[in-house]
């Protein structure tokens, strides 16, 4: 058989809509977030504090409910950081995600688990593991900031990123 020249590809754009249930604890989390409170869920048996809050303590295999939710600090400790500096298609939008961006893992005061989130710093020399960080609320940003919103809406964009605290702020 004579092989055809070229390396022909057929394009197909998957675009699947989903309505993922977020769970009762997350609903409560976002309600409280609107009031500027960050809530975790505390296992009634072992006391482990989960952030994000969820309905199951995997270690004890017991249920956590909204009654087990406890407020955490908006401040925490930086455990690790990176600056994402490569191109890729974001499956949430189907378009390229803008880069570079700061990406950190931190532990909010009071939580036993960790949080991975954006950071507004993109110079890797500015980070220091163990330093203090703070969750930023969208309405506290300067009005011309791309993540600024005049009020909290109770969704994930209420905290657009984590900010590194300067020594004098600690």
């Amino acid at each position: 058989m004579v092989r055809q020249k070229g390396e022909f590809q057929i394009r197909w754009k998957t675009d699947l809509p989903y309505r993922w249930a977020i769970g009762k604890l997350a609903v409560k989390y976002f309600e409280e977030l609107k009031k500027r409170k960050i809530m975790g869920s505390k296992c009634p048996k072992c006391g482990k504090m989960y952030m994000p809050p969820r309905g199951v303590c995997a270690d004890c295999f017991v249920e956590m409910t909204v009654d087990d939710m406890v407020e955490l600090s908006r401040k925490g400790t930086l455990m690790g950081f990176t600056v994402v500096n490569y191109p890729f298609v974001d499956p949430n939008t189907g378009a390229m995600r803008p880069f570079p961006y700061g990406y950190v893992i931190c532990q909010l005061d009071g939580a036993d688990t960790y949080l991975m989130h954006f950071c507004d710093e993109i110079d890797h020399t500015k980070f220091k593991i163990g330093q203090r960080v703070e969750a930023v609320f969208c309405d506290e940003l300067p009005k011309d900031h791309e993540s600024y919103r005049p009020e909290l809406k109770g969704d994930i964009y209420d905290i657009p990123f984590i900010r590194l605290l300067k020594d004098e702020e600690v």
């Binding site: 994000p52 994402v84 990406y103 893992i105 991975m116 994930i156």
Partner: peptide, 22 residues
């Protein structure tokens, strides 16, 4: 997780870089 992880996650490499960093 679509709510908590997807918006900021950059595939496997982002978390692996965090782990490498630690």
């Amino acid at each position: 997780d679509p709510v908590w992880e997807r918006p900021s996650l950059a595939g496997a490499l982002g978390p692996l870089a965090l782990m490498a960093n630690i």
